[in-house]
Nucleic acid binder design. Structure first.
Lengths: 292, 292
DNA sequence: TCATATAGTTGACTTAGGTCAACCATTTGG
DNA sequence: CCAAATGGTTGACCTAAGTCAACTATATGA
């Protein structure tokens, strides 16, 4: 009996589909057909824009229109017209609708709680789920330009600092490092990107304008579960594109030899190693790339 | 932005359901409605017994009956009556049906192949999937009594030996150890159990009759991804029950201090440490338990 | 300004998938 | 041997969910 990777993946698929089936019936258990429940849930999750919901659930116009109508009749949502575009409609959850959503969430969270509670190594289980989720949804990972002080950015930066603290021999203290000003990482000086997968931040990268004839790449980080999937490269390229858009022709960055995968990426992406160009105590490797 | 375990599990659920949705449409892409495809697949996977299939797919008698009829009309299966029970029916795949099943498997295997191929650490991804699958399907894990020379048993024993080889300082060589005769682990002398989860062996345990007034517990092993979920305990208890059924009143076993989790289990299950009772070169810990 | 595109609604229709009750044939237990 | 239980079949019926085409209302670009 040889157990091939495919056999293992098939078992995985069966295991999760039964679990998901259980979820479906719990949805049905609330006395609402699955389709309607999905729509309600999507409104809670993706916001009010009807066309966005339609795209996410991959539903027909007619079907969604009818589903929304029943939800409105049940007083779970209210439908309003877009102030900027009279053709578009928006679906808002009423308090009743929010409560209903909360119940659905509570139902599936209960399952999740049980799963974690009875597992001997919950942290390992979660890490495994993260790894699988990342692998399955690389294609749906999106880069967003945002303020480095926005919630997802702050989360990524926190994880980034924590990782440096773990990986540097003498730890890492942001206040000793040259922490870029948020303004330098916002247009027109620079930019900040966050990679989002289904609402969860999975990586970040900053482009910092310096006013010295070059811009810097700062704070490139990718969540452990998403590494090796090309996220760092995409973030880096997004920053380079943005630099070009801001008519910046030279990029520099500093990094540390304790992060070998970073140096590997920079080499692969056509960066050249240069001499130290700042007096930040942490970096010991310096790179430069001319943009054309 | 705090990312709670539940947020991560929700993301996992969404990631796998979209993947599974893609699978569904690939099924539908074969021009056959999902329900029919599921039935066909179940026949390939769970065998011919109609009532078994019904239980597995959780289908209504009438629904399944009709699905089987269309499959028979399409010449994908043949229906026969059970020779021992004239009420029961069996569904056999015709060559066409087998081909159709193979296509379905190929379709989903293609997905799986792609997933593995583009991942930087396929082995880590598989291990993560195993861990998740085991966690989700503990309840559906079944113990089977079987011949220690049967395929699943041989697989488990192979993994067991490989693990001892890794964990013992000086490796492990079966031929130097007292390898029990298969006959001693079969009724009426003893028994051998394998823990199966959805067709995959996840652990094993042998009860070896000695003819010396006691029986021995041998070859207790659990797959890494299923550890901590109580599988070893269930296997051990099954062996104990079987010993009682064979009117054996004393059990012994040997183990090694390089396997601390084993000793912990035996202590927890009411075994008492005793002096060496054999001259096997590998064990250095010996236990005994009187059955009442 | 007018043709065209877009967002959504509505009615008519289809299919999948399932329930329910009546039914037949067979097995099983007293 | 007969009553009850079991496994499966069948017809009548229902709902969820989606397609298609016609339609309204608004936006947009030449």
């Amino acid at each position: 009996m040889t157990i091939s990777p495919l056999t293992r993946i098939r078992r995985f698929n069966r295991a999760v589909t039964t679990e998901v089936g259980a979820l479906d019936t719990s949805f049905l258990g609330r006395g609402r057909p699955l389709g309607i429940a999905r729509v309600l849930h999507a409104i809670g999750h993706f916001g009010s824009d009807v066309s966005v919901i339609r795209k996410h659930l991959n539903l027909d116009k007619a079907t969604l229109s009818r589903s929304l109508k029943t939800l409105e009749q049940d007083a779970l949502i209210t439908l309003t017209t877009d102030p900027n575009d009279g053709r578009k409609r928006h679906a808002q959850l009423t308090p009743d609708g929010q409560a209903e959503c909360a119940v659905y969430n509570a139902l599936s969270d209960q399952n999740a709680q049980n799963l974690l509670a009875r597992h001997p190594r919950p942290e390992a289980l979660l890490a495994a789920m993260d790894l699988v989720a990342s692998a399955l949804s690389v294609d749906r990972l999106e880069l967003h330009r945002c303020d480095p002080r926005a919630e997802p950015a702050v989360y990524c930066l926190g994880e980034y600092y924590a990782e440096l603290e773990r990986r540097f021999d003498r730890g890492f203290d942001v206040s000793l490092s040259c922490d870029p000003e948020a303004d330098d990482m916002l247009p027109p000086n620079g930019a900040f990107y966050v990679a989002m997968s289904d609402g969860l931040p999975q990586g970040c990268c900053g482009l910092k304008g310096t006013g010295k004839g070059y811009a810097e790449i700062k704070r490139l980080w990718v969540a452990p579960s998403a590494r090796g999937l090309g996220v760092a490269q995409r973030l880096l390229l997004a920053c380079e594109d943005q630099a070009r858009a801001l008519t910046i022709s030279l990029l520099r960055l500093d990094t540390n030899s304790a992060l070998p995968e970073a140096a590997r990426l920079y080499n692969k992406e056509g960066w050249t190693q240069i001499d130290r160009f700042n007096d930040d105590p942490y970096p010991d490797l310096f790179f430069e790339k001319a943009l054309c």
